[in-house]
Design a protein around this nucleic acid. Structure first.
Ligand SMILES: [Mn+2]
Ligand SMILES: [Mn+2]
Ligand SMILES: [Zn+2]
Ligand SMILES: [Zn+2]
Lengths: 143, 143
DNA sequence: AAAATAAATTATAACAATTATAATATAAGA
DNA sequence: TCTTATATTATAATTGTTATAATTTATTTT
């Protein structure tokens, strides 16, 4: 139920200290319901933490990733985005405005198995994203 | 049959000048049968073109991408890799050594359609990769 | 509760991949 | 061959991220 409390328990269980900065970053990730970049988090919290270093944001996002609280979504040259992990899901991304929408779909187990069989890899995970144009951006088009 | 000739024709048809550097980069991409980074291409050709700028490699890879000759494979913070496009395929990537292996599998049309239906996006494409450990890296493990 | 110590934060510098800039060189058509 | 738009080069700039070292803070030990 209380996602923040659960996240803090995870930190405690894994021996990660709970600092005000970590608390605030987690709080923001959970409440924002989006997929912010490190810099967006940094800027969102600079009112509350005027002296927080951007390195702290990066460091803590890495810590959260390592204990499984967040997933890092990486894209070519641009900034990583961070997703507070609840359940397995994929993403649909707008090529016009960059919006990221959650997309629930069963995991592609069959594909993983075939890949393992064909290539001899020990498969651990996969990545899948859908790209296109969101309804808002489609609406703006000239007809 | 002759992939290089076809590629050069594509350049001619789209009004892109054929320079020795472009010729050499294409030749390397086709013959290497791998997924090199811009820097790997740059280093591979520095014998033949001691004065070639790394910017030339980047510029031309972008040109090739724009006319559909190559696909850019992007990964978080590390360098993009470039794939001379022949047929649609996916990639299996070793998390230990970084090796990239082609994996032929029918396109995930069903997933694209469902995503379009559920999110209202106009879907244009998708990305899918399998991660794991390659046979060589698995063999090296201590038992 | 105070002291000790291990970990986290900050400020800043460094880094690596990529792109921008401006001068020079060249491919391709007239 | 001449012309001109385009490409290349050398270099600087930019951006996202990580490393470093000093300072601060959370937790453990006394
Ligand atoms: Mn998500
Ligand atoms: Mn490939
Ligand atoms: Zn959009
Ligand atoms: Zn490997």
């Amino acid at each position: 139920m209380n996602q923040l409390k659960e996240a803090l328990d995870t930190l405690k269980d894994t021996g990660v200290r709970i600092t005000p900065q970590r608390h605030a970053i987690l709080e923001f990730l959970i409440s924002s319901m989006s997929h912010p970049t490190a810099d967006e988090i940094y800027k969102a919290l600079e009112g509350k933490f005027p002296n927080m270093s951007v390195a702290t944001v990066y460091n803590n996002l890495r810590v959260f990733r390592e204990v499984g609280l967040v997933k890092e979504l990486t894209y070519g040259d641009s900034s990583s985005r961070f997703d507070f992990v609840t359940t397995q899901h994929y993403h649909v991304i707008c090529e016009k405005c960059g919006k990221i929408v959650d997309f629930h779909y069963p995991g592609l187990d069959e594909v993983e198995h075939l890949a393992a069989h064909v290539t001899g890899f020990k498969v651990s995970t996969h990545r899948m994203e859908i790209y296109g144009t969101c309804p808002e951006c489609s609406g703006k088009e000239v007809h």
